[in-house]
Computed example of a mutant assay.
Amino acid sequence: MASNTKIPTIAPSARHHEGKVAIITGASRSIGAAIARNLAAKGSNVVIVYLTENSDPLAAKLAEELTSAHGVVAIPVRADFTTAEGVQKIVTEAKGKMPVNTKTGKFQVDILVHSAALFHAMPLEACNLEDFQKVYAINVWGPINLTQAVKPYLPTDRSGRIVNISSVGSKVGLQYLTLYGGSKGALEAMTRTWARELAEQATVNCINPGSTMTDMYRDANPAAKQANALFNPLVPLSPLREWDTEEQRKFGEMYGGRVAYPEEIAGIVGMICSPESAWMTGSLISANGGQWMSS
């Protein structure tokens, strides 16, 4: 971001997550890291879940940042949440290092955010079984597997929050997203099922971001970006503004409009996790500037 650039932001809310524990997958970078910062600013202790050894430095740096800036407990956990061993490691690390709930004296997971995802953008004829298994393992089975492991530790008073990160591509039918969009459609269906099954423990909601200035977007197939850009004239919040970053302006000029900042997506997750959102569950909330409008 340019040193003279200032993006308007909303001041953090009161620390209404003080003492709570949040587990966030894909949290070492991009949207996941922005969500971790949002929740930590509101007092939540954070388990930063990530997959690869290459992300060790990023996760460690983020944990140190959150602890220093907000006085919370933040721990990085490298684990494959598609495996039994991986989810057990996440739960064991959290139980061993996170503070217990002040009311019950027991370990409790108050917030669970499924942000990790494997992006796949290829024409229909290029899809294959191997890619299908990889995409659905991470985007569908991973959230199921981790939610199963965390379920015994959710609150019993409906105060818990589970947020699934889908994609606008599943709703508007973006080209080249046969596997990715399909996996996110499954996640949206799971959201509605879990909202009923876990009603006494947590609300379960979903958001569907559009393109966001992340490494996933930067590295995406140019054809996929161009296909998405066809929607920009109809996206109410896509026009560039004077506070947008130089990178955002470059992409905006190429594709006819700006994409989201990770912090904007994190803010919507933060809204869902707030106590004021207690009467909302099973919902899909628009987080894409109006590319798809919630109805």
Score class of each variant (00 low, 15 high):
Lys6Thr: 08
Lys6Gln: 08
Thr9Glu: 13
Pro12Val: 03
Thr25Arg: 07
Ala27Ser: 14
Ile35Asp: 03
Arg37Lys: 13
Val49Ala: 02
Val49Pro: 01
Tyr50Cys: 08
Leu51Asp: 09
Thr52Tyr: 05
Asp56Phe: 07
Leu58Asp: 14
Ala60Tyr: 04
Lys61Leu: 04
Leu66Asp: 08
Thr67Glu: 07
Ala69Ile: 01
Gly71Thr: 13
Ile75Leu: 13
Val77Lys: 07
Asp80His: 06
Phe81Gly: 02
Thr83Arg: 06
Gly86Phe: 09
Gln88Phe: 08
Lys89His: 09
Lys89Ser: 14
Ala94Glu: 04
Gly96Met: 06
Lys97Asn: 15
Pro99Tyr: 14
Asn101Asp: 15
Thr102Asn: 09
Lys103Val: 01
Phe107Pro: 04
Val109Asn: 14
Ser115Val: 06
Ala117Thr: 06
Pro123His: 03
Cys127Thr: 00
Glu130Gln: 05
Glu130Lys: 00
Asp131Asn: 07
Val135Thr: 03
Tyr136Leu: 00
Val140Arg: 03
Gly142Trp: 02
Ile144Cys: 09
Tyr153Gly: 06
Leu154Cys: 08
Pro155Cys: 12
Pro155Ala: 12
Thr156Lys: 13
Gly160Leu: 04
Arg161Met: 12
Arg161Thr: 15
Val168Thr: 14
Ser170Arg: 01
Val172Glu: 05
Tyr176Ser: 01
Tyr176Ala: 03
Tyr176Asp: 03
Thr178His: 04
Tyr180His: 01
Ser183Trp: 00
Ser183Gly: 07
Ala186Thr: 05
Ala195Asn: 10
Arg196Asn: 05
Glu197Tyr: 11
Leu198Lys: 07
Leu198Ser: 04
Ala199His: 15
Ala199Arg: 15
Glu200Cys: 10
Ala202Ser: 00
Ile207Ala: 08
Asn208Thr: 11
Asn208Glu: 01
Pro209Gln: 12
Pro209Glu: 12
Met213Glu: 10
Thr214Asp: 12
Thr214Leu: 01
Thr214Arg: 02
Arg218Ile: 05
Ala223Gly: 03
Gln226Asp: 05
Asn228Ser: 13
Ala229Gln: 09
Ala229Arg: 11
Ala229Met: 11
Asn232Cys: 10
Leu234Lys: 15
Pro236Leu: 10
Leu237Lys: 13
Glu242Gln: 15
Gln248Gly: 02
Arg258Ala: 07
Glu264Asp: 04
Ala266Phe: 04
Gly270Asn: 08
Met271Trp: 10
Ile272Val: 05
Ser277Trp: 03
Ala278Ile: 04
Ala278Asn: 14
Met280Asn: 08
Ser283Val: 06
Leu284Asn: 08
Leu284Val: 11
Ala287Arg: 11
Met293Leu: 14
Ser294Ile: 07
Ser295Lys: 15
